[in-house]
Amino acid sequence: MIVRENEAITLVGGGAVARADFDAALARAPVVVAADGGADHALAAGITPRAVIGDFDSISAAARARLPDRVLHPMADQDTTDFEKCLAHVSAPLLIGVGFTGDRLDHQMAACTALVRHAGQRCILLGAVDLMFLCPPTLSLPLAAGCRVSLFPMGAVEGASDGLEWPIRGINFAPDGRIGTSNRAVGPLNLSVTAPKLLVILPACTLDLVATALLSAPAKWGAA
């Protein structure tokens, strides 16, 4: 591990990062690790990241010059994204990622894949409108009635729910089959799933609830 912490970590990527989203992540995860060009975002916010991890094809020369060598961890591997490199080399109870969703759909889809590949990490990706995370084996969220809940399978997975307007028990989810977008909570939500393949997408305003729920989940998937 390049960074190992007992408190939550904010991962900042090179995509668009609204300052409000960055501040929301920092309030809950004060240690910062940058994925490649995310170092520029961190420095612009007056923060020196604990580490910069990536293939270094997007960090600016100015940002690289401002950072000490001990912070820089270039990796030439082109088979994984910078986000995956961070997930593979950072350990913390919870990760909150900003700058990994937004305008570049290919980057966003790659981030979804990374969450599944590194299922042992408890990681929330925060955007301006929504957040998403990989559902742990069981999850309890005190959602308000009417809260939008989308469930997107990244592979074959089944589950059960209590607190959804359209329950999911008996559904065989698959990315090329049945998906679960735009469901709604009718009150506190309890989910259980059979495999680390189901992404949960909620409004960004639920960040505190999700962070607490993931840290409180009785079990998580196997080590990353």
Rank of each mutant, 00 (worst) to 15 (best):
Met1Ile: 09
Met1His: 13
Arg4Phe: 00
Glu5Asp: 05
Ile9Ala: 02
Ile9Asp: 01
Thr10Lys: 03
Val12Pro: 11
Gly14Glu: 10
Gly15Ser: 13
Val17Met: 05
Ala20Gly: 05
Ala20Tyr: 02
Ala24Phe: 11
Ala27Pro: 14
Arg28Ile: 14
Asp40Asn: 14
Leu43Thr: 09
Gly46Ile: 04
Thr48Asp: 10
Val52Glu: 08
Gly54Thr: 01
Gly54Asn: 08
Asp55Ser: 03
Phe56Ala: 03
Ala61Glu: 15
Ala65Gln: 10
Leu67Pro: 01
Leu67Ile: 00
Val71Asn: 10
Val71His: 11
His73Arg: 13
Asp77Asn: 08
Glu84Lys: 15
Cys86Trp: 01
Val90Ser: 11
Val90His: 05
Leu94Ala: 07
His107Trp: 02
Ala110Met: 07
Cys112Arg: 08
His118Tyr: 14
Gly120Ser: 02
Gln121His: 13
Leu131Ser: 00
Cys147His: 00
Pro153Ile: 02
Met154Phe: 05
Ala156Gln: 01
Ala156Cys: 00
Gly163Asp: 09
Glu165Gln: 14
Phe173Met: 05
Gly177Val: 01
Gly177Ile: 03
Ile179Asn: 08
Ala185Val: 07
Leu191His: 08
Pro196Asn: 02
Pro196Tyr: 10
Pro196His: 00
Leu202Ala: 04
Asp208Phe: 11
Leu214Gly: 02
Leu215Thr: 04
Ser216Gly: 05
Pro218Thr: 13
Ala219Arg: 15
Lys220Tyr: 15
Trp221Ser: 00
